[in-house]
Structure formats: C-alpha cells, structure tokens
C-alpha cells in the first residue's frame, strides 16, 4: 500500500516539472502567446540536469523540512531523482523499468511501473511533460498564467488526486527555458516548495545515471 501511495506522491511531484504548454484554446490572447513560447522552448529539450532544494511546510512538523538533491532527465523516457541531504535516497526510471535505493536502510530494489499503478501514472505524466506532449497535459490540468515576467503558472488538476493535491504553482526562469520554482499545494493547506538551481539543458548525461 505504501508503494502505491509512494508512486502517487512521486507522480504529483513530477507532473509539475518542465511544464508543457501548447495550443491554448480558451486562454486569453496574451496568456496564449506566453504559453506558446514556453511550448516552443521546452520542445527542444533533450536532457536536463539540475540541483534542487526542497522546503516542506507541513502541519505535522514544528518547522519547515529542508532537503536537497539532484534531478536528471533524458529523452525519451529516462529520469533520475535523488535526495542527497539530509538522507540519501532516490529512484531511476528507464522506460517501464525502475530502480530505487535508500542509503540508511541499505535497501535497493528494481521495479516495474506496470506493477505499480501510481508509478505508471507518474511515468506517463513525466514523460509527457519532458517529451513536450502538450496535448496530453492540457487534458490533465487547467492552466492559468498568473504572471508573465517571470512566467508563473497555476495548474489545477482535472483528474482524481485522492483528495490531497489542491493546485500547483510553477515559476519559470527569466528566459522561460526551464522551471525555476514549483509549489505543490495540498488540500489541507500544507505545501512544498522546490527550487531548481544550476540547471543545465541539453548537455550530454552519463549513461550510468540511468
């Protein structure tokens, strides 16, 4: 059960990265232009490598939880997410096959996303995002441009989120080429902020990363 919930959480996290934009019917003319430009920029992305910091503002904690790690994406269909502080853990996805690890427990295991329904959804959404499948993402979210310089979007899910995801805020870099900050807002008021730093686009990535 935790595996199911785990993959559902992963989905929510990744679904908001490297956001797609596309044929923006129903969006105001100015906003549509902004989104179309983002769509053009993201369409050429082959690889992404980035540091990230995570701030979790949860009622279950007395203070914000801070953590950091690395993120890698390679088209088509490969990604790596790893947390390096304060714990070392993470996972890699390559097509349907995945691998996850945890340094403290020493646990390391392979998995098949077909056997983990929520992980399957994660992979679908993530690959759609990274592969610039804007048609697919438009079906999943209602997207609103909240600010234009830098671009900040609000994404309200159109799918069932089991009641815990409320909406996402995405802020792009000044050039619009990559995501700079993501906020995941939960239904109970908790939220998580992710800041991406040292983002490198379309540089070769080592095969062993995946």
């Amino acid at each position: 059960m935790k595996g199911l919930l785990k993959t559902l959480g992963i989905f929510v996290f990744f679904a908001q990265l490297w956001l797609p934009v596309g044929a923006w019917a129903g969006v105001s003319g100015q906003d549509a232009k902004v989104l179309e430009r983002l769509e053009e920029l993201s369409a050429g992305i082959e690889t992404i490598a980035s540091d990230f910091t995570q701030e979790k503002y949860l009622a279950v904690f007395q203070e914000a939880m801070l953590s950091s790690g690395r993120f890698y994406f390679k088209s088509p269909g490969s990604l790596r997410w790893e947390l390096t502080q304060p714990v070392v853990t993470g996972f890699v996805l390559k097509g349907n096959e995945g691998h996850r690890w945890h340094q403290r427990t020493g646990r390391s295991e392979s998995f098949d996303i077909d056997r983990e329904p929520v992980m399957k959804i994660v992979a679908e959404q993530l690959l759609a995002c990274a592969g610039a499948d804007f048609d697919w993402l438009r079906q999943k979210y209602k997207i609103v441009v909240e600010a234009q310089a830098p671009v900040r979007l609000r994404l309200d899910p159109l799918f069932e989120t089991a009641g815990f995801l409320n909406y996402l805020n995405i802020q792009f870099s000044s050039g619009g080429r990559y995501v700079q900050m993501v906020e995941v807002h939960e239904a109970d008021g908790d939220y998580t902020r992710l800041r991406f730093e040292n983002v490198v686009i379309n540089q070769p990535l080592a095969e062993e990363l995946f």
């Binding site: 559902l8 996290f13 949860l58 939880m65 947390l83």
Partner: peptide
C-alpha cells in the same frame, strides 16, 4: 514525508 511520495 521528506520524499516526493510524502504528500500521499
């Protein structure tokens, strides 16, 4: 809770 799945 620290990991991405924490929310779920």
């Amino acid at each position: 809770l620290l990991a991405p799945e924490g929310m779920a």
